[in-house]
Design a protein around this nucleic acid. Structure first.
Lengths: 116, 116
DNA sequence: ACTACATATGAACAAGTGTTCATATGAGGT
DNA sequence: ACCTCATATGAACACTTGTTCATATGTAGT
């Protein structure tokens, strides 16, 4: 970013070139950032683990997570917009479930990390 | 959370019990939340991918990520506090590198997800 | 049509986050 | 001792985020 800083490089320019080549596109960073943001809130993590092996309606999620209806509904809305969960309206209820397996994998990986 | 909501459960209480049993401890949620927060910022993601296969000093990271010295230093400080990176002071420079393999795994998993 | 229940949504507010700017610390060379 | 380079750090600021409160929408039963 600055030109007149770090005049005396110790690591050779090749190392910096290599690191530059390892960079991804901005779209990839933005997507990953969005994905991680979605799973970086404890309430949403609770919701995700509740939905891990079954579908649940908003009602059920209130019971399970001990959160208010509004809070859950707002979070589900975000999770749905970002395609992490899908919904199925049946009668008065709306049932939510995880949308694909990537979420489960990332969740599991972090959970393993948490055990240390 | 509320008692007088959802009087007519469609899913049986057993399902709710099962979901409750799948919940983790608050400490686990907080840890996972913290971990995901750390990798949910594009600047930090850039830093992490630059450090993926090599150590770099703050100087190098400025060049590679095209960010200001202060911004990088602040982010490295957070990444170090949360043990995602470690540092090694040699002379005038401080070299940073990833601290364990969990970060790499979680990063890779998300990157795969990003390709869809 | 009316009522009760389930969910969604908008506004408002407190709390958290990332950057910049200015300055401090610390190490090496002279 | 002094100067310069490399990094760290504190304060200030704009911006984002999650919750609550109030209210709207929609569905089923009567």
């Amino acid at each position: 970013m600055k030109a007149d800083v770090c005049k005396e490089f110790i690591t050779h320019p090749q190392v910096i070139e290599a690191a530059k080549n390892d960079l991804l596109s901005n779209e990839e960073y933005d997507y990953m950032s969005m994905l991680f943001k979605m799973v970086s809130d404890p309430t949403r993590l609770k919701i995700i683990s509740a939905l891990f092996d079954r579908e649940l309606c908003v009602c059920d999620l209130m019971e399970v997570t001990e959160m208010s209806q509004s809070a859950i509904s707002h979070q589900l809305s975000k999770l749905k917009q970002t395609r992490l969960v899908k919904s199925d309206k049946r009668g008065k209820n709306v049932f939510y479930s995880l949308n694909d397996d990537h979420v489960r994998q990332i969740f599991r990986q972090a959970q393993e990390h948490a055990r240390d």
